[in-house]
């Protein structure tokens, strides 16, 4: 992360989020300030490599429902469909993030298969760097993207 400023990182993440959401589901989102509803789901993954990092995407369930309906081109979708679509959504975001960010500042890395959970679940509490970005679609349904770089255990001095 030393080679990228906060602004550069945010621009990269914004670009990835806007393009991926539109290309996958034909949904336009924009950066905003706000908060999610109480009814959210979380998709998490961890990156493996020289720098440990986690990416969490928390979203209003209504956003994920809409995303899934668009992806499967069907209004009638199941809970499993929503989970599968959400996981693939984060999968594509991560792939693009790896390509853009980690190739610039670190040796290229891989990430774990994303995990879907109901509710709000953030993976890391001890972070060296954290970027939180909030987005909404045209229906004011929100997404919170949290990118965290963990402090390595042997560097964690309290």
């Amino acid at each position: 992360m030393n080679s990228l400023s906060d602004k550069e990182m945010q621009e990269i993440l914004n670009g990835i989020m806007f393009n991926t959401t539109e290309q996958m589901a034909n949904i336009k989102i924009k950066s905003d300030v706000g908060s999610l509803s109480q009814d959210v789901c979380t998709i998490n993954t961890s990156f493996q490599g020289n720098c440990k990092a986690t990416l969490s995407l928390l979203a209003d369930k209504s956003f994920l429902l809409r995303l899934t309906q668009e992806i499967f081109q069907n209004e009638n979708v199941s809970k499993q469909d929503i989970e599968d679509a959400s996981i693939e959504y984060l999968n594509v975001i991560c792939g693009r993030l790896v390509n853009k960010v980690f190739s610039l500042v670190h040796k290229p890395t891989k990430f774990d298969i994303p995990v879907f959970q109901n509710g709000s679940h953030i993976l890391n509490e001890h972070t060296q760097y954290c970027c939180e970005l909030y987005y909404v679609n045209n229906y004011n349904e929100g997404i919170l993207l949290i990118l965290e770089f963990s402090v390595l255990l042997n560097d964690n001095k309290k």
Binding site: N91, R96, V98, S103, P108
Partner: peptide, 9 residues
């Protein structure tokens, strides 16, 4: 066909 798109891959 993959989301992993960096040069090494």
């Amino acid at each position: 066909i993959s989301s992993l798109a960096y040069d090494d891959t």
